[in-house]
């Protein structure tokens, strides 16, 4: 006999744990500019954008965001220590293998913002870049 109440309780607990994991107090030093970023706590319903770093690329390397809409950038590295630096949006993060890092942002200004790896990682380091496009 299935105990539906018990199953619902387990599902509720699992959901709460998952949301808590996404409650994004950035787990790395992130520089947040007052102009473009709202460094407020996660509301739990943001879109999560997974960004994978490996020598010498980010996947994806073009990220489209909506002005004023909160998202969580979820960083992981497949090989070694990389950086994520987007000076136009005031975001910088260290990305280590086996360690997911999250940052919540609310872009406040439309535009194209370049990002790049700022931790020297070898011969193609200078090419490791991408852009965040914030649309109205």
């Amino acid at each position: 006999m299935i105990d539906w109440k018990y199953l619902f309780r387990i599902a509720a607990v699992a959901t709460a744990i998952a949301l808590a994991a996404l409650a994004v107090v950035p787990s790395f030093p992130a520089r947040l500019s007052a102009e473009n970023i709202s460094p407020v706590a996660s509301q739990g319903n943001e879109q999560i954008i997974r960004i994978t770093a490996k020598r010498f690329e980010y996947m994806p390397n073009k990220i489209k965001l909506k002005k004023g809409v909160a998202v969580i950038l979820n960083f992981t590295s497949l090989d070694r220590h990389h950086g994520f630096n987007c000076p136009g949006l005031g975001i910088r993060a260290d990305i280590f293998p086996g360690q997911a890092n999250n940052v919540r942002i609310v872009p406040q200004k439309a535009g194209t913002y370049e990002f790049h790896c700022d931790v020297f990682c070898g011969g193609g380091h200078e090419d490791m870049s991408g852009e965040i496009i914030v649309e109205d």
């Binding site: 630096n85 000076p87 136009g88 370049e114 790049h116 790896c117 700022d118 200078e126």
Partner: peptide, 9 residues
Amino acid sequence: YPQWDWWTR
């Protein structure tokens, strides 16, 4: 020009 990593942190 930090966008090109032309800086010192």
